[in-house]
Each structure stands twice: as C-alpha cells, then as structure tokens.
Computed example of a mutant assay.
Amino acid sequence: MISVEEALDFLLDNARGLDTEYVSLGRLSGRVCAETVHALTTQPPFPASAMDGYAIRFEDAQQGNALKVIGEAPAGKSYAGCLKKSEAVRIFTGAMIPAGADHVVIQEDVERQGADIIIREKQHQQRHIRAAGIDMQKGDILAEPGTTLHHLHGSVFAAANIPHICVYKKPRIALFSTGDELIDPGSDLEPGKIVNSNHYALTALIDHWGGIGTYLGCARDTEDDIAILYEQGRHHDVIVPVGGASVGDYDHVRSTFTQLGGNINFSKVAVKPGKPTWYGALDRTNVLGLPGNPASAIVTACLFLQPLIRALAGQTVPERKWHIGKLATDLPANGRRENYLRAVTETDRSGNILLHPAEGQDSSLLKPFLSCNALIRRKPNSEKLQAGALTEFMTLTRSS
C-alpha cells in the first residue's frame, strides 16, 4: 500500500492538461482560464457624468449664479463644443463630459428658467464626474491562466471589450459500476440484490468539480461485460470503474484492465475507507478505480478524483490545507491506515468549530452523508483523542 499523499502526488504528476477552446462570456462560470486576459479598452473610456444634471465649470458654481444652457449631452452622444464662462450643458448619467467642464450640478440643485439655470444649492466641491479608467485601464490583467472563472467574470470581460475567452476543456469522466447484485432504483428487490446508488452521487460531484460525468452503465461480473465498458470509455479523459477491485473470485475489473493493455501504477492506498483504490492508464486515458462500498467511493472521490479533475482542467491544485476543529466526543486510537471520519460541524458561541463524528462509520453507510459536512482526518497510528482535543478536518464536498 502507498500513502494518501504518495497516491495524490502520483495522480497530479501524471495529469496532462487538456486542450483549450473559446467560449462565450455567458458560459464562463466554473471554467478555467487558459490565457492571460488583458483589458482591450479603458473603462470608462472617457470622463462620464455620474448623475443627471448640468455640466459646468466649478468656478461658475456659486450659489445664485445664472448659467446659459448651450446644449445637451445624452448618453451615447457627446456635446462637440467647449464650455466657456457662465455656460452649462444639460447632461445625463453616463454621458461624456463636455470639454471645459469639471463639475456636474445635479438637477435637484438648480432651477430652470427658460434657457438659463439658477444654482440654488451651494456646491462644496467638484463632484459627479467619473474619471476615464477608474474601473480599468487598457492592458490591465483581468485573469491569469489557471484562474477559475465565476459568474461575474463575463460582465468584467465584456466591459473590457473582450468577446470570448480561451479556457481549458472540461475533463470528460466515464463512470461505470460492476456487480451481478446491483439493480436499478424502483426494481423488485429479489434475495441477494441491492440497489445501485453510487453513480448518482459521483456523477453529480464530477459535474460540481468542473468535469463532465457520463455514466456508462453497470457491468455484470464477467470480463467480457467489463471490457465493453472500458472500450466505451477509451475516448474520455478519465475512466472511473466503481467496485470489483478486491480479491474475490468475481472481481475482474483490474484483470480485464491489464488484458486490454492497461498499466497499473498503484493498486492499494493506506486509507480508511477506500483501501482498494487504484490507478493506471489505458493508452492516454487515466483510470482511477474506486471501491464499491458507498462511503469508500465518495470519500476516495473527494480525496483523489476531485484534484485529478482540477489538474486536468488546468487549475493549479494547491496543497491540501487542513481546517482545525475541536472534537465534541472522544475518539479511539487509529490504526495504520489514514482514516477519514464523517462528521457534522457546529460553531460555538466563541467561534470555535466543534466536530461531531457520525455514530456509524461503516463503509457501506450512505445515510450519514445527508447531514455530515466534514471529514475528520486521523493520521496513521495516532493516539486516542479526548473530547475538546484539536484535530484536522476537511470540508466534505456536497454538490448543490
């Protein structure tokens, strides 16, 4: 068995970045930028009025002054002339400030009398003009390669006059289950059968992590059935077989993989739950085998599949940073495998995070995932911990 860190390092070292594509500004959320994005224009590109009112020279803004209105500047149409002493231009929000003006007096502060305005309120300082480039300057860097783009990037890029962005393609993840005992939800439960459930969580998580999850189906416990699904997955970036990787007489997932020419890089990880996790390559396609027990599959997907997807998608995968919380209950000493315990977090009045381990930690249990939002990390051979002790945990990814 190799350690969790060794397995993760191997996965990331062998993850090849995917090709790129251009996408429209309305489809950027969650995509990973593949280029340095520079602003193509200054924003705003000209000094603009921030209010409806009158553009004037501030030296003419004395209370009681009468100014002659010589023109109009609506948004999108500039006033071509230059203001002189005691002149004003009617202006609207977003319009270009006319030459010679350095102040906008709002319409509520003046009285209109025919072709003139009378300044009724004292003007304390130059105001209501947005300088050119206060948002961004042409050439400003707006995003770097590896940046995960969010909902608001599209508007920023649009304001910078950028029509589309080069991003990494989303990793395509092919998932399949194995087992003669598995049946679809809603089927009659015959003796010895169980409902096939893992792929619903895993495909949702894959999509949430930035990949495109495709469920290929469930293979019977024969090498021929399993080989068909491997072949269907060859044109994806990652194949994820779930189950069938232990040492039983009917576990054919790895043997079929090697018969098809696959190369296994590691076959067990010192982690609980999830020891049968394995990794290899079938030609240029990554193959990450996950255990069939539900908790094992979900936990190992969070530990290994999520960073693999991020690396393939062009993201810089940071080192894992552990949160620190206080245990709400005692924990026994840990064995020689790194252990991840499902838990619920709570924040006390002092702002401390309390960790409540789920009562059931068996790798077959799915129901704890309804409430658990954290995984407590127990290092190999760690000692017993008392309630109140500090311990490491990671947030449990849950798609929403």
Rank of each mutant, 00 (worst) to 15 (best):
L331G: 09
C302F: 11
E338N: 10
G292S: 06
I309D: 00
R342M: 05
I324C: 13
N339K: 15
I298T: 15
W322E: 03
G292V: 05
Q315T: 02
H323Q: 13
D283T: 08
N286V: 09
N334C: 06
D330A: 14
L327S: 03
P318R: 04
Q306L: 06
A311D: 00
G289F: 04
G335T: 13
R320M: 14
T300H: 02
I309L: 04
A311Y: 00
V287W: 03
L327Q: 06
V317T: 01
P332N: 11
Q306P: 00
T285A: 09
L312W: 02
R342H: 03
R336T: 14
R320S: 15
T345R: 13
V299Q: 02
G335W: 04
G314P: 10
A328Y: 12
T345P: 08
I324L: 11
D348K: 06
E346L: 14
A343K: 10
I324M: 03
L303K: 07
T347P: 01
I309F: 01
E346H: 15
P332T: 13
P332V: 10
A297R: 13
A328T: 10
P294Y: 11
L308T: 01
R336E: 12
T347L: 10
A328C: 06
P294L: 11
T285K: 02
A297Q: 03
D283M: 04
E346P: 10
A328H: 10
A301T: 14
A295E: 13
R336K: 15
I298C: 15
P307H: 04
E319A: 12
L312R: 02
A328F: 07
E319W: 13
G314Q: 06
R310S: 02
C302A: 14
G289C: 01
H323A: 08
G289H: 08
R349A: 12
I324V: 13
N334Q: 07
K326I: 06
L341I: 15
A343H: 08
V344K: 12
A311F: 00
K326W: 06
S296H: 09
V287I: 08
L290K: 13
A295W: 11
E319T: 15
T300S: 01
N334K: 09
I324G: 03
V299R: 02
L327Y: 10
A297E: 13
L331K: 04
G325C: 08
R320V: 02
W322T: 04
N339R: 12
F304G: 04
A311G: 04
T285H: 08
V287N: 04
R349K: 14
T316N: 10
T347N: 00
V344A: 09
T329N: 12
D283G: 07
R310I: 00
T285P: 06
E338Y: 00
R349G: 10
I309S: 09
K321M: 12
V299F: 00
N339L: 04
T316P: 05
